[in-house]
Each structure stands twice: as C-alpha cells, then as structure tokens.
Design a binder for these strands. Sequence first.
DNA 1: GCGCGGCGTCAGGATCCCGTCAAGGGGGAA
DNA 2: TTCCCCCTTGACGGGATCCTGACGCCGCGC
Lengths: 224, 224
Amino acid sequence: MSRVLVVDDDPQLLRALRITLRAAGHEVVTAADGRSALKEAAAAHPDVVVLDLGLPDLDGTEVLAGLRPWFAGPVLVLSARTDSTDKVEALDAGADDYVTKPFDMGELLARLRALSRRAAPGPDEPVVVTDHFTVDLAAKQVTMDGVPVRLTPTEWGLLAELLRAPGRLVGQRQLLQAVWGPGYERETNYLRVYLNQLRRKLEPDPAHPRYLRTEPGMGYRFTP
Amino acid sequence: MSRVLVVDDDPQLLRALRITLRAAGHEVVTAADGRSALKEAAAAHPDVVVLDLGLPDLDGTEVLAGLRPWFAGPVLVLSARTDSTDKVEALDAGADDYVTKPFDMGELLARLRALSRRAAPGPDEPVVVTDHFTVDLAAKQVTMDGVPVRLTPTEWGLLAELLRAPGRLVGQRQLLQAVWGPGYERETNYLRVYLNQLRRKLEPDPAHPRYLRTEPGMGYRFTP
DNA sequence: GCGCGGCGTCAGGATCCCGTCAAGGGGGAA
DNA sequence: TTCCCCCTTGACGGGATCCTGACGCCGCGC
C-alpha cells in the first residue's frame, strides 16, 4: 500500500507498530533515534512518517525541522506528553497530526488513512537543479558552478518553502507563517528583505529575477 | 486569512469559536444544524469546516457524506465521544481530524493551521484547458501557447469565480461580492473594466469574446 | 426617428506594493 | 569581554495596480 517510516526508541512499541502496519498492508522501515531517522528518510523515501517525540539523541522538533524542507509527505507525531502547548509546537513545526500515548491502534491506522488521502502527489525529490544553481534540500546545501553558497537559517527556510512547490505561487501569508511562525502574517517587510538577499546570492541578474519571481499583491513563485 | 464554516448546536461554544477564529484572522460562517450546514457550505464556499458530530437533526456522518462529494477542503470533527471506534468511523467517512470535547483552543487553531497547510493540492481538477489558454488554479498561473500570462489579484479573483462554474451564468452581484466583498454589489463599473482587461489578456479576439461572454442585464459566463 | 439603459473602451491620478539600503540590537563564538 | 553574524526595523523612490470619470456604441422600447 505505502511505505511507512516508524521512529521510536521503545523496541516493544516499535515491534507492535511494525506488526500492525504490516497487517494493514504497509511496507515498514524503522529507526530508533533522530539521526538514523533522517538518514532512513532520505534513503528509503517513505510515503508517511510516524515520529515519536521522545528520542534519545535529538529533540523531535529537530527531526521535524530536518525533515520538512524536503519531505512533503504526512508526518504523524507520537508523544507521551498531553500538554496542548507541546501539541501546538509540534503541529506548527510541521507535523500533520499528534497522537498521545497510550493510543488505540485502530485510531492510529484511521488517522494514517486520513493523512494518506491528502498526500501531496508532488515528488519529494531532495535535490533541485537549475541552470545556475543546485539545491540539496536534505543536505541543506546550495552550490553555484560547484561552489557552495552560504545561506542564513532564515534564507534557507524561505528558499525551502518556495522550492517545495516548483512553479506554484506561494502566498506571502503562507511563506511568513511557514518561516517565522503564526503571528507574523503581516510582516511583509521580512519577505522583501530576504527575497532580496536570496536573489543577490542565487540569481544571475538580481535586478531581473529569473527563478524567484514576484507576483505583485499575491506572493512569490519559484520557476525552474 | 481563510473562510471557516463552524457547525455546532451549542450557542455558547459557537460564540467562543467565532471570537477565537476571528481573532486568528479568519472569516467565520456558522450553522447550528446539519441542513443549514450543508446549505451554508454550498453558499459560502468555505476553505475549512469545523463540524460537531452531535447535531439535532442529522447525524454528523450524514453531514460529512453530504459534504464530501463536492467539498474538497479539510473537515475537522468535534465530538464529545472519546471512543476510538467513533473516531475511526468519522475519519473513514472523510474527516481529516477528530478532536474530543472539551478541547484547548490553541490546539484547535494549530490543528486548523496544519490542515490548511495541506489544503492547497486538492484531489479535484484544478486546471482548466481551452484551445487558446490554460488556467492552473492551484498554481495560480495562466499560460497561452506555453507563455505565462501575468494577472493582477483582482483579475485572478474574477477569473477564478467565473471558472468555478464553467458554462454557467454568474450574476454580477455574485461576482462583485465574491471579489470585492459585501457592499460593492452596485459597482458594476468594476466588472466592465476588469472583464475588459481579462479579455484583452486571454481572448484571441477581445472585441468578440469567445470564452468570457456577456449576458446583458444578467451577468457573465465562461464557456469552455 | 428618438430616448434610454447597459456595455465596452480609454486615460489619468491616487494609492498600494515592492525593491533597496542602512542602521541598530541581540546572541553566540573566540 | 570583544567581535561578528544575523535578524529586525525604518525610510525612500519607483513602479504596478486600482479606482474613477468620461465618451461612444449598440439594442430595445416608444
């Protein structure tokens, strides 16, 4: 049916999830910590990720942050923490659903079905190539003519959000919310400043953008 | 930001939701029972629906069933029932998320944000093709012979409203209200000006419109 | 033939939006 | 501590977009 990456450090729960998901017709890949989770995700190209927030090495939100720039599929977060601030944090960091432990297996499967229904058909190719520069979303690296280009975290977030939907127009609100978080939807200055910086670093002619184009009054668009 | 339809029979909760959602920058439409929910959904074209399962007239799943054939946006279900079989049932009936009452407002908003993030690539057909031009609603892009055509936000609003009902007549009042908002129903000048611009950009012979036709005294019609 | 309402067309000015630059502040590294 | 990088914020000029009014045309009814 689809490939699921399960990330959890509890071997017992991992085993139970593997059996249940297999029985439901999924192919299962597992990881027990954050680093191997990111590695497995890049290597196995899963359709869905089930992610436990309580990992030994990395914080769950760090894994989410490492995943989201290039992984377009749904991420379902598992956690023992029932506090709603934790939920809000994880959801805003890019999670699509949040289930508290202990949970019912049937419900988990139903939530996965609901998420898969919405699955973006876009190919989550971790590397974007143009005539002038190459962006490796998974490795967080940009190169022009083989020379690496240094981007600040904010520049990177903005670029990643634009590259996730090549050719599609991305509204300024969506960009602001994705990069700066909810509550910054009005700060369109930020977009102007950072788009300018990105264009200076990536565009062959920053005054006449070819890749990072502006649609006045609506948003921005990355055209390959 | 986006239009939310809230369906609940508890006036107090309805009021709280309305206030919270407004504060978060959403436009709010409400309904207190299943039948008016379906009517409102058809009339107001919401982006998201928040649906209480315990309604006086219809069962929540019936509302879902009535909504889903044509409504592609996210539906978040509210319910007092915590049993996981209820959750599975609702999720498999087409709900995208299931929150049990009582719930935290911040969490609800975060879940709505997560759902809206996914909303863009709908399962419906977001591309309209004619012999002379192609309109990609999701990417907000128009092309003629492969060459992109730039439209202003107002032109987009008008075109999108006309394309939502291919072949059907759209009244001027409906167009004005959809694009300029309530209170502009008399400004038929606007329609003349912007229809003119659209025709100049899209029609092969702007003087004799083939796709964006006028019905004198009634409105306009897009004929594929 | 005549008047009238609705529509298409055009152009000008006000307003909003975008690109650009530079200065200030905060946090992390040396 | 000091330094440096990055983020934020404000200001300004130029350009695009929107609104507005005017004019002429056409079809309809009288």
